[in-house]
């Protein structure tokens, strides 16, 4: 067995609407994969099919050699649905104890799990009194139960503050280091940038891009932006030397293709003392994302 999750030519229709159209992907043990896509792209639908909650219209899904929704697959997979609200009358500890029992684990592990997600102090309070982020952490705690081979997390960091997000990704790193595969969806591009091994971009139910971030950068071939700050009075000289540059707040902004990057840098270096400062801005993740989403939409 080489991959934890294998999907081939998966399609899903809701009546006339094609929510997923021929999605194929694999996730290897220990790999962290981020699923990106606009609202309604089909991320949650894909996850529900992986879990066997809704049937696919066509295609194949295997999880650790088992079919989605089969007892073996359910034991191997942990899930965090989007917008889950646990019963307000239960305490965090009671809720996690219950989920532990359902997985055949000892309920006494609950406190440890809650401490892991930073809920140790609030464990004995009712979930009805929790803040949004605290409720989200209850969901994270239950996803850590047992040693899941695959974690399917639908917008796991929604509602978490920046520090909690960092702690959350650190938890995922530990799990991945132990061989668990992670498939998560997110709308926060910057956080998946450093914390996942591979990015999948879904647009209108189709996989429009797949690869590591640097792969995607290379493939998109988006222009590089440079900000050149001139020494006092030299701005017009520089503008003349760099056709296409525009003056914004005292700095000259220009863009060039990846292939012309070095040449342009050379020209700027040739201006010598006239240049006070130079900033090179690679295309942002947002630029990449909209590039691939728009490409997919055509």
């Amino acid at each position: 067995m080489t991959s934890t999750l294998k999907i081939s030519a998966l399609t899903k229709r809701f009546g006339d609407l094609a929510a997923l159209g021929g999605v194929s992907l694999t996730v290897a043990p220990g790999e962290r994969v981020a699923l990106l896509g606009h609202n309604g792209a089909g991320k949650s639908t894909l996850m529900k099919i992986i879990l066997g909650l809704i049937p696919a219209t066509g295609g194949e899904v295997t999880i650790c050699d088992a079919a989605p929704g089969s007892p073996a697959a359910r034991r191997a997979v942990a899930y965090l649905p989007e917008n889950v609200a646990f019963h307000p009358a239960l305490t965090g500890e009671e809720q996690i104890r219950h989920y532990l029992s359902l997985r055949g684990e000892s309920p006494s592990l609950a406190m440890g799990l809650l401490e892991k997600v930073g809920l140790g102090q609030a464990a004995r309070r009712r979930i009805g009194t929790y803040s949004k982020g605290m409720r989200q952490r209850v969901g994270l705690a239950q996803a850590l139960i047992g040693n899941p081979r695959l974690l399917v997390l639908d917008e796991p960091t929604s509602g978490l503050d920046p520090v909690s997000r960092r702690e959350f990704y650190a938890l995922l790193d530990d799990l991945a280091a132990q061989g668990a595969s992670i498939l998560l969806s997110s709308h926060a591009l910057t956080e998946v940038e450093a914390r996942t091994d591979r990015i999948l971009i879904l647009s209108r139910g189709r996989l429009v891009a797949e690869g590591t971030l640097s792969d995607l950068r290379r493939r998109a071939d988006l222009p590089v932006t440079m900000h050149v700050t001139a020494r006092n009075g030299y701005a017009p000289d520089i503008a003349r030397a760099l056709p296409g540059a525009i003056l914004v707040d005292g700095a000259l902004h220009l863009t060039c293709a990846q292939t012309e990057k070095l040449e342009t840098l050379g020209r700027i270096a040739g201006l010598g003392d006239k240049v006070a400062d130079l900033e090179v801005l690679p295309p942002s993740l947002e630029d990449l994302y909209s590039h691939f989403s728009q490409q997919g939409a055509q």
């Binding site: 529900k48 879990l51 066997g52 359910r74 997979v77 899930y79 989920y99 359902l102 997985r103 239950q142």
Partner: peptide, 8 residues
């Protein structure tokens, strides 16, 4: 949906 993803 969470409950139905559990082995129960």
């Amino acid at each position: 949906s969470l409950l139905l993803a559990y082995p129960i």
